[in-house]
Amino acid sequence: MTMTMTTTTAAASAAHLEYVLRLADSALVLGQRLAEWCGHGPVIEEDIALTNTALDLIGQARLLLTHAGTLEGRGRDEDALAFLRHEHEYRNLTICELPNVDFGRTILRNFLFAAFQAPLWEALASSRDGELAAIAGKSAKETRYHLRHAADWTVRLGDGTDESHARMQRALDDLWPYTAEFFAPDAVDDEVAAAGIGPAWSTLAPAWERAVLPVLQEATLTVPARTPFLSHGRQGRHSEHLGHLLAVMQHLQRAYPGAKW
């Protein structure tokens, strides 16, 4: 198999598992949010684009959750991890669980997140965890298209009509504080980085800014000042929105435990 871990002597460290769950849950939760657009897009092309992005993210999440289940070694598969964990056990970035609100805000969040995933996958492609490196190498290609799609629309809407500009600026003002979580220093990150499994997310800030700032400028949007606000989804402390999202996503397995289709 592609499992070429050099540290297979002991069970994976708790930090390693935690790190993979953060990647998996962020992809899964945003994928679930984007799936809400299915049948509701402003035009059919964008309905399809958002649901295709959702499919890619859910596909990435499936691979990552399967891997997390292997690392954990307690026999939980992707479905058990997706459908049978509670809110506080989820490790996604908070920004991924926020409501879509409107098309512009959905696009802007996709842009901010894809610009973060892109350098993350690139760094993970040389992870000492061979399976994680393989997933990252595959996902990097998909994320490039998500980023391009979201960047195009960010410019069109930001530098569009008075109404679209105003909505995009409001969305940026609201979403920007949540991007601080991407780069907040964190003990799990430090341990994983020291083991050569993945980058500490704080080191990705320069690459993210290089991708994000020129597009926001072209979109004529004003970048808000940083504030002390910090969200903690990565540590399992979520906004009120995740519980509602999981209630919908997990409904079937909760109502009919073990159901298969």
Binding site: E45, E46, I48, A49, N52, T53, L55, D56, E142, Y145, R148, H149, D152
Partner: peptide
């Protein structure tokens, strides 16, 4: 017309 067609 669009970055995504009938399939990804």
């Amino acid at each position: 017309l669009s970055q995504f067609g009938a399939t990804a």
